[in-house]
Design a binder for these strands. Sequence first.
DNA 1: CCTGCGTCCTGATCTCGATCAGTAAGACCG
DNA 2: CGGTCTTACTGATCGAGATCAGGACGCAGG
Lengths: 244, 244
Amino acid sequence: MHATEISPLTKKLAAFVALSDGDLAVLARLHQKRRSFGAGREMVHEGETEQSAYILAKGWVCSYKLQPDGTRQIIDFQIPGDFLGLRSVLLRTSDHSFEPIVDILAAEVPKKDLLEAFTNTPRLATAILWVASRDEAMVVEHLVRLGSRDASKRMAHFLLELGARLTLVGLGSKSGYACPLRQYHLADALGLSSVHVNRVLRDLREAGLVSFRDGQVKFLDYAGLVKLAGFYTAYLDETGPLLL
Amino acid sequence: MHATEISPLTKKLAAFVALSDGDLAVLARLHQKRRSFGAGREMVHEGETEQSAYILAKGWVCSYKLQPDGTRQIIDFQIPGDFLGLRSVLLRTSDHSFEPIVDILAAEVPKKDLLEAFTNTPRLATAILWVASRDEAMVVEHLVRLGSRDASKRMAHFLLELGARLTLVGLGSKSGYACPLRQYHLADALGLSSVHVNRVLRDLREAGLVSFRDGQVKFLDYAGLVKLAGFYTAYLDETGPLLL
DNA sequence: CCTGCGTCCTGATCTCGATCAGTAAGACCG
DNA sequence: CGGTCTTACTGATCGAGATCAGGACGCAGG
């Protein structure tokens, strides 16, 4: 990536906070150490202590927890512009594992650099903390999805949330987005069997709401889908920053 | 409460971090403004921006989100020693509502005091951030509960987690604890109907594992319950602090 | 005293989604 | 080229848990 190209993270932050030239410079510096990981290889194992966080530049990752009985629950997906292991660096704890869904490209951010950035550019620091807080809000919403919505609402809500997130970094729109997930990813995330995921997707497609095919999510009736899902974006686009 | 009495929060922090006299003094000061709230009255409404956080001293609170269709999903319960609205103060956002389950007593912590404490006693600040991080880990675990465990495992796991949390502040033990929750609280938290909650509780009681009656949770076979639930405490007792 | 309400509890029925079983179509590989 | 793997898809059956309906009990207020 050239210095002139805008990183997804920068794009995301800029949507909510006015960043100074200094902030932008620091942000660019955090993106320097590029690393790639192959699809399927576990990156951080649950319980490990990491000394680096990553900013995802390209590709998708999922974070999950394995159960004693072998089933896995996907907690969240990370898309370009998202942090990986931010909390585990700041707080020396990691309570779930990460796995790249496709080959990914990420910027490694050593603990030291991150802490430096925090002290030198407090405005950037709050912006990053705000991002972390937004991630937590998404986890809470995911919890609500699992606890009190049926299969098709879960699916609809989830696909809409992903769309909103991708749109923020320029990878999606109200008409759809490219999506490397398999049906079993959806199953593990939404607490359904992949058989049922398949049926729900067919139902939604036949109802003319959304199609999930060949790595493409296409919104056929955005408004209808929003209504079915009860999708309110308040938890995603809390306006602006904050001060610490 | 007298200055000599140890607050639940102090007890909790002390279990993980060695606090200096200075830390303890600041912590005591944060506990000064006492306020009480009646059971059932909503404290913070979803979407509101609050200028104060609270440290719960006595009683139980639940945080929840309401769905368009009227059902509510309980995100978490707060017990003595827990923060209320910590994130909403630090980040000017609140994405769920709070409701006292019984009459409660809480210490109001104005934003200003909290920020002061953060700058003056960094060690205490990290301890508090660590507490926030632990709360988030519990939300994630709750998500896993909802996504990939059946009703009785959910219940067993939940009752065990509550027990572990209460034990940390001296309100519980491996033999049980006082619990003001109603069966419908369990239902709203675990994504079950209260009818089914009732049945599951009966089953667990008749299996000689745990009883939930008259405001008392009694562990009849702790080891057996742990085994049934697949209850691992790693996410609760990450050792020690951290540095920021 | 009765009345009404909230909570606990139980039985009967129905339904959503899991599980089992199997087909079909690529992709990769020797 | 045939084999093996992964993924998508469909039908049949089964079961966990929702829903409906109603009863028992304690408690507050008239």
